[in-house]
Write a protein that binds this DNA or RNA. Sequence first.
DNA 1: CGCGGTGTTGAGACCTGTCAAGACGTGTGG
DNA 2: CCACACGTCTTGACAGGTCTCAACACCGCG
Lengths: 252, 252
Amino acid sequence: MPQPRDLFDAHFRKLRVRGKVSAAQEQAIRGILSDPRHIPAQKTLVRENEQLSESILILDGWVGRTKDDSKGNRQVLELHVAGDFADMHGFTLKHLDHNVIALSPSIIATALHTNIERLFQQHPELARMYWFSTNVDAAIQREWTFSLGRRAAEARMANFFCEMFLRLDLAGRVESESFHLPLSQAQLGECVGLTTVHINRTLQILRRKGLVQLEGKRLTILNARELRKVAEFDPTYLYLNGPQPDPKRSGN
Amino acid sequence: MPQPRDLFDAHFRKLRVRGKVSAAQEQAIRGILSDPRHIPAQKTLVRENEQLSESILILDGWVGRTKDDSKGNRQVLELHVAGDFADMHGFTLKHLDHNVIALSPSIIATALHTNIERLFQQHPELARMYWFSTNVDAAIQREWTFSLGRRAAEARMANFFCEMFLRLDLAGRVESESFHLPLSQAQLGECVGLTTVHINRTLQILRRKGLVQLEGKRLTILNARELRKVAEFDPTYLYLNGPQPDPKRSGN
DNA sequence: CGCGGTGTTGAGACCTGTCAAGACGTGTGG
DNA sequence: CCACACGTCTTGACAGGTCTCAACACCGCG
């Protein structure tokens, strides 16, 4: 995987999609972030209910918020990729109701809550901006809820690909219609709520229809229009225009 | 339904479960809330993507965040009852990716965003507190995602009852193991992602097992312990202890 | 009195899960 | 270099949970 020039770049790209960040503010944020740290796959970054004193920024790799049921089946509740804070909500909650796990080898930086506290005192607009970002996390969560409640396997998986494509594009991690997808089919199943076997068969359908290609952990979207149609994908919930109403729809 | 002395009471009860609210702060909050307004069932309070200038506090009744799929099937993404702000997230997002609908006759009050803004400037601790509350909303959302992904119909429904019981208890809306449940079986289905027919059959199972009773819009929990067991219910995600780690579990 | 919404029941179809086995690739140790 | 273990992907047969369609009872209300 090609190393971007600036590991922190993705985060500021994302922030700036949704609002203005001055150079001074960017410096202030950089000032409270630790040096990058490499994390092996499968490592638990935050355990359910442990006391938190820092939040984690993903610089590279895929990280999931997970819960397990009594039979040990895991559900990935939300995914985080380069540029996302995996647990900014931990800043106010101080302990989480779920685990945070590296699903692939990852690179992270951390920020102490005491430093975030000070950052927000000096830059109140940033507090609002990060509140906004936890609300976008929640919007993504809602869409996953909706997917699990109303969409069949094929649409669910198509939706998943559409969403991750856009989110990775925001982070500068997309190259001409394709991105690195470091999850096994079993992990994909944990994300969209299907068994490994059914993931396999659903992938075959999408491949046979010529919508996507998945080779060596790289997913290529071959027919974006049709994929979105199968998914009934509507990116409104990603708030790519920030707090303003989506101009495409505000007219009605 | 018996009218509580103070319609706004439920909100402050909830706030105080998770943190301290001084008398001055309470007065400041009351100062920005409109007079109560009655809303008929089925009325849309906020439409997807419309520009928002105020947030809605539920004083009585059940309100849902909903999305519809292309075939018109509705999914209720989250429920709000007395004491909840239905769209405090709208304060930062300014437009929503879902609708907000009164599922039963309801009473609401509203607060202008400009007034909330001023409130937070004068009482920065309240900004943190409401950020916390939108993060609890997200935690509830996560649990619904988990339910839809991993739990079968019976456990899902049992979980739903356990959650609403606790949340309504917080709002002072529970009388000895029972609460007013103003939803039809069809609406229940929209909440837990099942068809009306299957809701009906699942309810019969819970009834036959002697776990709950549902008569005339009133749900009574007959065997809380067993219901929780069937549900695999763990209330950690409701953050009933506020930001501190749950003492029951912090020991490991 | 009739009507629409709600709750209930039955029969059958379909989607997804379960269980089991084999193919393939990769890394490790002998 | 080979043997082997292990994870991952794939396939088949079957089971089971949930949905669909249809019908009917009940009730409140106009």
